[in-house]
Amino acid sequence: MENLKKELKEKIIEALNLEDLTPEDIKDDELLFGEGLELDSIDALELIIILDKDYGIKLDDPKKGKKIFESIETMANYINENRSK
């Protein structure tokens, strides 16, 4: 699980061009949207692509996204339970 969280942080930094951050800068429970990393709606689409491309998870209910993408912790838990890759 710790490896998955680190991997996720690296993927997010690369996909969202957060060049000023390192994986160590992102806390597992830090909010990804709003006050935390300040991600926006375009970033949310990028996260959906990461789930699909890298973990084989298709998010068919957008309402679930809010909870899944709350933090690295919640993303990693969801991927762990639903991944097909």
């Binding site: 996909a15 969202l16 061009n17 375009i42 970033d43 689409l45 990028e46 692509i49 699909d52 491309k53």
Partner: peptide
């Protein structure tokens, strides 16, 4: 062409 258009 690689399969995933990037919104960003």
């Amino acid at each position: 062409t690689e399969g995933f258009a990037r919104p960003a």
